[in-house]
Amino acid sequence: MFVLSLPYSVVHGGYWSILAIIFVAYVCAYTSKVLVQCLYEENEKGERIRVRDSYVEIAQAVWGEKTGSRIINVAQFIELTMICILYIVVSGNLLVNSFPHWPIPEQGWSIISTAFLVPCAFLRHLKGVSRISFYCTIVHLLINACIIGYCFSRAPQWAWDHVTFYINVKMFPVSLGVIVFSYTSQIFLPSLEGNMENRGNFTTMVNWTHITAGIFKSIFAYICFLTWAETTQEVITDNLPNMAFRALVNVLLTAKALLSYPLPYYQAVELIERDFFQGHDLTRFPSCYATDGMLKVWALAVRCLLVVGTLLMAVYIPHFALLMGFIGSFTGTLLSFVCPCWFHMKLKWDQISWKIRIWDCIVIALGTTCGLIGIYYSLEGLIEKFRHDLGYDLND
């Protein structure tokens, strides 16, 4: 979904944004592999044995049971809920731009969109989420075909000379956060690798998916920027000139956003249930499930409350690219760059070469630096947007 804002990153970084898309793909592929390596230890025979099952268990092995679980659980929950919020934000933004003459504000469209998400509270198995994700993929292919097809129809007017190596120092860190956020998948990988029929194919899968993603994202961002140059909007579909065509693509994008919502929502619910609702013997509160395996009424209410909470956040923080840049700079760099390499060094120090140790340190330093800079400028941008929305003079 966040590919839609990658052309906007080229506005502020030019060719550097294109290079960043490819470089971040390489780094994220590397950190994905080293994170999964931390799930394994070698026995006396030199055989790899899976001794951990999740990101949290890796953190517990490094930072201790309480500290590790708290840090990673909080970071994961923030990222998952913010992804949910972004889906609602982008739904409202797409619909208000599709039907500008309708007397419904962006917040109203967000509320209407969220009404379709309430049934997510009834999800109990990953199988149901996977079915929804399948339809999401189909919609995604249709959207890409529409946007890229339109861009190629404008090929004679492409602004080749507008792409430069110029960097907007203030906005490029935000764009970098958007790029990082478009690759964040590490929180899902331990579970994914554990459910593969042939775990030996994990490295090959990670390599090819990141190569494909890097190529597609860089080409998509480049072609879209060539089509609209400096007028490129935060969400690329806002640039489509024909209102009927824009409305069609935006409705498809809204459908994709709503179909994408269940996966991070389901993962966030699992985090809450695992930490707070496993029964008084293990956690503070009773189990969410009755003896027959059905959800209790109050547990369903808690799940609905999470949906409403993401809606309220979406209504009060309606700036898609800046919010995405902030989250990408914060939890994205932490979970995708810093933690995997830190855990890798702590758990595999005696098993890795000095070159890998140096590369791990470089990735940690890059992630920390880019994250802090991105957080600063994203927050500054959000504050300016809020002041502008409230009618304050930005120079006050």
Rank of each mutant, 00 (worst) to 15 (best):
G332R: 09
L372A: 09
I373E: 05
A365K: 09
L335T: 00
I352F: 09
K348Y: 15
M324L: 11
D360L: 05
G328C: 02
L347I: 05
L335H: 00
G328F: 03
L366G: 03
G367L: 08
P318H: 02
W354A: 14
L334V: 02
W349D: 10
C370H: 09
A321S: 15
L366M: 08
K348D: 12
D360W: 05
L366Q: 07
T369A: 12
Y376F: 06
L379Q: 11
Q351I: 07
A365F: 11
C339W: 15
L366I: 05
L347G: 02
M345S: 08
Q351F: 13
L379F: 10
K348F: 13
F330M: 10
G374W: 00
W354H: 14
D350E: 13
T333M: 12
W349N: 14
I327P: 11
C339I: 14
A321T: 12
A321V: 13
C339Q: 14
I375D: 00
I362K: 03
C370N: 09
S329C: 08
C339T: 12
T368A: 11
W359Y: 13
F326L: 09
G328R: 07
K348G: 15
L323W: 10
L335N: 00
H319S: 10
W354Q: 11
I364M: 06
S336T: 07
E380S: 13
S378W: 05
I362M: 07
W342C: 13
A365T: 07
C339E: 14
C341Q: 04
L335M: 01
